[in-house]
Design a protein around this nucleic acid. Sequence first.
RNA 1: GCCGCGGUAGUAUAGCCCGGUCAAGUAUGCGGGCCUCUCGAGCCCGUGACGCCUAUGGGCGCGGGAGACCCGGGUUCAAAUCCCGGCCGCGGCACCA
Length: 504
Amino acid sequence: MSVEIQRAKEEKKGLPPLPNVEVWGCVCTRFAPNPDFAIHLGNARAAILSYEYARMYRGRFVLRFEDTDPRIKTPLPEAYRLIEEDLRWLGISWDEEYVQSLRMELYYDVVKKLLAVGGAYVDLCPAHKFRELRNVGKPCPHRDEPPETQLERFDKMLEGFYSEGEAVVRVKTDLSYPDPAVRDWVAFRIIDTSKHPHPVTGDKYIVWPTYNFAAAVDDHLLGITHILRGREHAVNTIKQMFIYKHLGWRYPEVINFGRVSIEGFILSKSKMKELLRRFEDKFLGIDDPRFGTIAALRRRGILPETIKQLILELGVKSTDATVSWENIASLNRKIADRVCKRVFVVEDPVKLVIEGMTLPHEVTLRFHPAQDLGTRKYVLNRAEVFITRSDAHEALSKGGLRLMEFTNVRIVGNENGVLRGKAVSGGVEVAKEHGWGIVQWVPVEHAVKVVVLKAEGMRLRRIPCVGEAVLKNLAGEVVQMVRFGFGRVDRVERRAVRVIYAHP
RNA sequence: GCCGCGGUAGUAUAGCCCGGUCAAGUAUGCGGGCCUCUCGAGCCCGUGACGCCUAUGGGCGCGGGAGACCCGGGUUCAAAUCCCGGCCGCGGCACCA
């Protein structure tokens, strides 16, 4: 279904055109995550927008892992695959893939060029001393030493002559620039990888480019024409432009968009890491339903089309956006309602024994009333079903009810919490005439324990339920639990099924 | 503290760059109806930003006046849109990405 609808929506919304496409000839965009954690909705915004623009202009789209900090934002070995998986799930494919920690020699080449043309220098001042000078707009004594000295010192850095903190490479900028952060920023620093090994390259390198250097160089080397990234990168653009100026490169077009957050969700990577570290047993992992990671949204039954649609609606605005869960839920519901199987799950179950039914009785239920999603069949040797307590109460006062897609039942008794009923012939019309409720039900013989996990703010509530046996065959599927809500079958065990609740 | 961005309905946002088409769009929410076996789903209709009147259910905004997109001022025939000031909120200011 969604392809046509999606396309129609996109066309209607229409991403605004990219600036200066003519001067670049073709469009090339990139998504450049740090593989230190799974990606969240904010990252997905950059990924989806970049990918969509590349597609829109029939250009290239590049995936680049920015893993040049083995010490503070240490890459997570499994994150590389995790991110690829998330992107694929979102329907994103990429033409090229790069890992920065595998491109170190390239960065060394460029910085040597930069040192040779006097666009950078090796700074041997302690950090605090440099900061003092910088804050008053003064150059450090190493700034004006000749290129030969700089190159020599850089080689010494590579050889391990200096230890952490003793030497950095700085890019020459404008020392009078109003924002001190821009003044002669650090391009390379020494990281002792014998103490902080890099998951990809181990202790092979000790001189590491900073984000600003590696990203700036790669954007040029890979022919990136349009950069779409978060507003928090605004100063980085200014910093990076100095390299381009020194080397005579043309800086790509930049579009900064605002932050996205989801009301009531945790989106900060550091916060998620912290929570996982401190309360490991209280969380279900990187994709815990209280987190705003793509993996978490997937795990709780949000469909990729929903996320894509949401991001395209948000567009490229520079203002921050807080999307409400209600909004995501309604978007998701519209799509899921059409494509997901419907099953019966009963909360707070009450037994109902039906008399006057020929046994064994075979009942076939469709997974969807309008789409052909198949059926499931149950053979009843005992006419006993579970229904929800609140439905039982209502049936008691109205005298009967209809078991959806099965039979009408007149209530004849209520003993020790077990309802007794009599099967009444006829279809839905009969039930409607009586004003009886049409309810979901689960045959007692074919019931499995279902635990529904519902994220409520910071709490994760366990709702014990019973469900149809067929749930055991639906592992990983997003389902509609009729008159209960949408969710995804998270785990199937011999005696119980776990469902993560998405939304009503 | 220093740079930068923003403040539109209950909520989330569109529009602002290029002033009139905005008595302000969309989604959600809310109200009602329909319903193909979900009345906690779906579909349809209505309801929203200001003012006035009201028998409080709702009604009226045709011409003129007033009012209407944080507040106050200004420019203009005309401002949600441009300018100035204020208040509030957010982001950046790492040998992080």
